[in-house]
């Protein structure tokens, strides 16, 4: 594969896949809702936490200047906490995706790719598949 061809469907044979049918399956619905139920709340929480930090810096500088140990103050610790939570959420998401998303996604993908392989093995069917797929 490769070259300048823009015909993804031709190159990857996805014409043999009924995406609408897959979309309706409970398994795909489960994958989609698991993904969305994780990414939306977690992202909104992280953005709210960042916004809170910025608002504190702008409107509560006295609080931010309170020393905690030595000259290290609340503001510095909150900033470092932003870095720590970013690392933590990253690790959390990867663990979640590896355990909860990837197995379902690869099951669906493997079945669809088996269907592509089967249709490629039957040349008459492949030849009749529409090739004028719009470029992607």
């Amino acid at each position: 594969m490769g070259n300048d061809a823009l015909h993804t469907a031709e190159a990857t044979g996805t014409d043999a896949v009924d995406f609408a049918a897959i979309q309706e399956t409970p398994r795909f619905q489960k994958l989609r809702s698991r993904h969305r139920r994780f990414v939306f709340p977690v992202l909104i929480a992280c953005l709210a936490w960042y916004l809170a930090y910025v608002l504190l810096a702008a409107y509560a500088p006295a609080l931010m200047a309170t020393p905690v140990f030595g000259s290290v103050n609340v503001g510095l610790l909150l900033g470092l906490a932003q870095i720590v939570t970013t690392f933590a959420v990253t690790t959390w998401y990867v663990t979640f995706a590896n355990r909860e998303l990837d197995p379902i996604a690869s099951e669906i993908r493997d079945e669809a790719e088996a269907a592509i392989a089967a249709s490629a093995a039957a040349p008459r069917h492949a030849a009749s598949a529409p090739t004028a797929e719009e470029s992607l």
């Binding site: 995406f19 609408a20 993904h35 690869s106 993908r109 592509i116």
Partner: peptide
């Protein structure tokens, strides 16, 4: 709607993703 189905399924499962 077929394009929407295709995009949603492909985005989450990787079916037909460029190798």
């Amino acid at each position: 709607p077929a394009k929407q189905s295709e995009m949603e399924v492909r985005s989450l499962t990787g079916i037909g993703a460029e190798k």
